[in-house]
């Protein structure tokens, strides 16, 4: 078991590491100076790709070969996509998909 000081240092290091990843771009490209065109370009095109990456990130522990084969996830995502294409109400799409998923994993699979 670590001492309290060692625990505090460990937590401080995690805070430092997290803040480094958040502040670094703003320190390297300060608001006063013109941002390089390449970085501006990345700022415009990255988000679409990053949102795709986050969707995959959410599904990273789903196993498509064993268990329920990712079916509850795929069905619930289909519900979200359908609801959102139809009504474009963020809360409705999210709530609909989540309730559907909960019913599926609690009652069906």
């Amino acid at each position: 078991m670590m001492t309290l000081t060692e625990q505090m240092i460990t937590i401080a290091v995690v805070v430092l590491g997290t803040m480094l990843t958040r502040f670094l771009p703003f320190l390297v490209f300060p608001a006063g100076k013109p941002t390089p065109d390449y970085i501006k370009y990345l700022g415009r095109v990255l988000p679409a790709a990053v949102f795709g990456m986050l969707v995959v990130y959410c599904l990273k522990n789903v196993s498509f070969l064993t268990g329920s084969h990712g079916l509850p996830e795929l069905i619930a995502i289909a519900v979200v996509v359908t609801l959102h294409s139809w009504k474009r109400q963020m809360l409705l799409s999210i709530a609909g998909g989540t309730v559907c998923y909960m019913l599926l994993v609690q009652m069906v699979f």
Binding site: C58, V80, S93, I94, T98, Y101, Q106
Partner: peptide
Amino acid sequence: NTEGLEFVMTAMFVVIFMEQ
């Protein structure tokens, strides 16, 4: 029984992906 509630995060990122 909150089993499955964690899907709210996935649903949110799917919606954000679609909005983009």
